[in-house]
């Protein structure tokens, strides 16, 4: 596993999360992220062959609710929190491509 992470890796991850990072931050995070990855890679020293992946830290399954309508929120209240609204809808800037 990596004991260092390239600046490009950090920029790529930052871009995926839409984070604006400075060159100084790239350098700082490269070191920090590499330390996190190194820590995780310690696990690789163990034989986890027989251990099922952990899906959730709590030993719970099947948390379900009945299919019944519950009150939502007032549209005007929510739209008032949005940067812009029009015709009862959220107004967003021009979208540059179809949805992925």
């Amino acid at each position: 596993m990596p004991d260092s992470l390239s600046a490009d890796d950090v920029r790529h991850v930052a871009r995926l999360a839409r984070l604006d990072v400075t060159d100084e931050e790239v350098e700082l995070f490269a070191g920090q992220l590499a330390a996190v990855l190194d820590h995780a890679s310690d696990i690789e020293a163990l034989d986890t062959h027989e251990v099922p992946p952990t899906a959730h830290p709590l030993p719970l399954v099947n948390v379900l609710r009945e299919d019944e309508v519950t009150p939502g929120v007032e549209r005007d209240e929510v739209l008032a929190m949005a940067p812009a609204a029009e015709e009862g809808r959220f107004r967003v800037p021009r979208i540059l491509g179809e949805a992925p």
Binding site: D67, E68, V69, T70, P71, G72, V73, R75, L79, G88
Partner: peptide
């Protein structure tokens, strides 16, 4: 279904925009 996958908002086609929403 009557409601959405993870909340109790109505699952209904053709309603007034943003009337079936919650946190």
């Amino acid at each position: 279904t009557r409601t959405k996958l993870f909340c109790g908002c109505p699952n209904s086609f053709g309603d007034e925009p943003n009337t079936n929403i919650c946190p």
